[in-house]
């Protein structure tokens, strides 16, 4: 083991690695995560740091973490970002990633380890092969709703990279800089990383243990994130509304032509029909034209809001390290 480390050190794996870990009322699970996954970091990386994101933990998570670090000294520096209040996975992890300083940044969305910890190294090697984003995915998504979401999303998204049920991922500093240069707020990391124009790889694995149910994110939150993602990253809703507008526009124009024809033909017209239909046609034409404009406005506003910082932190604490 020691010889192994030496070799790597001499071979200069000179990368600085960051591990960003999401914590929200994990209880004892933190210990297991550190014991198994962080142990791989400790054994294989010369220089790394751990950034824990405390997203409004109200249970013993932080005590467990502190106690663990006291009894298990690591060579890494460990810091904790305390979010001001519960932000949810995406925002909180954005804060964690923004604090991380590594060349390569691991994002662990959960401390449940349903994979072989060696997967950490596998993703690392895939990154060295020239991928800027490497995701570890658990075969296929657990829920039917998730599978449908990913299928529709991948069909309609603008980027060439696919997304799926990712357990953790590794992102390069280059990708992070690229995303910052795009100047956008990151509502859904997977989607932004996948769409940043750099190459992405996936490492699939078969879940070793039964994965704990998604207790973390409430159903409502997941649905709203899914809808948001469709709006932000795909054309699907834009297209849908455009198509609807055009259909109705065509319909009104058709009715207009029909009225004019009737009028010119001088056919049997019921009293008042002409004026009623004329009013309706012009009225609806106006409404749909306005709607199209409004949609355009909305997309501009969306882009503006994209650039705002969206999370609030209470404190950054250095809990262990040199």
């Amino acid at each position: 083991m020691v010889g192994n480390n030496k070799m790597r050190e001499n071979g200069k794996e000179n990368k600085f690695i960051s591990a960003v870990v999401y914590l929200h009322n994990e209880g004892e699970a933190v210990r297991d995560f550190f014991d198994r996954v962080i142990a791989v970091f400790e054994a294989n990386f010369e220089r790394y740091e751990i950034v824990c994101v405390d997203d409004g933990c109200t249970d013993i998570t932080l005590e467990v973490l502190r106690e663990y670090l006291e009894t298990h000294p690591l060579k890494a520096m460990v810091s904790v970002v305390h979010m001001s209040f519960f932000h949810g996975l995406e925002s909180a992890m954005n804060a964690g990633r923004d604090l991380a300083i590594g060349d390569f940044v691991y994002e662990f969305d959960s401390v449940n380890v349903d994979y072989d910890p060696k997967l950490v190294l596998e993703t690392y090697h895939r990154m060295l092969e020239g991928n800027d984003i490497v995701a570890a995915t658990a075969g296929r998504a657990a829920r039917l709703s998730s599978r449908i979401f990913y299928a529709v999303y991948n069909q309609t998204s603008r980027g060439k990279n696919r997304i799926g049920a990712e357990t953790f991922r590794l992102v390069s500093r280059r990708a992070i800089n690229r995303i910052k240069a795009m100047g956008q707020y990151i509502p859904y990391r997977k989607a932004v990383y996948a769409g940043c124009g750099l190459s992405k790889a996936e490492v699939c694995y078969e879940p070793v243990r039964q994965k704990r149910q998604h207790g973390k994110q409430r159903a409502g939150e997941r649905v709203s994130l899914a809808l948001d993602s469709f709006i932000y990253f795909t054309n699907v809703l834009e297209h849908l509304s455009a198509i609807l507008c055009i259909v109705f526009l065509l319909f009104t124009v058709g009715v207009g032509i029909y009225i004019i024809r009737d009028y010119l033909m001088g056919g049997q017209i019921v009293e008042g029909w002409l004026s009623t239909m004329g009013f309706l046609t012009f009225g609806f034409f106006g409404v749909f034209a306005l709607l199209t404009l409004t949609l355009k406005y909305l997309s501009v506003i969306l882009n503006l809001i994209f650039k705002q910082q969206r999370y609030l932190i209470a404190d950054i604490e250095k809990v262990a390290g040199k």
Binding site: F16, R47, E49, M77, I101, G102, D103, K322
Partner: peptide, 10 residues
């Protein structure tokens, strides 16, 4: 202490 150069430089 050992230097924090790896962290500071990163």
């Amino acid at each position: 202490p050992q230097t924090a150069w790896p962290y500071m430089s990163r």
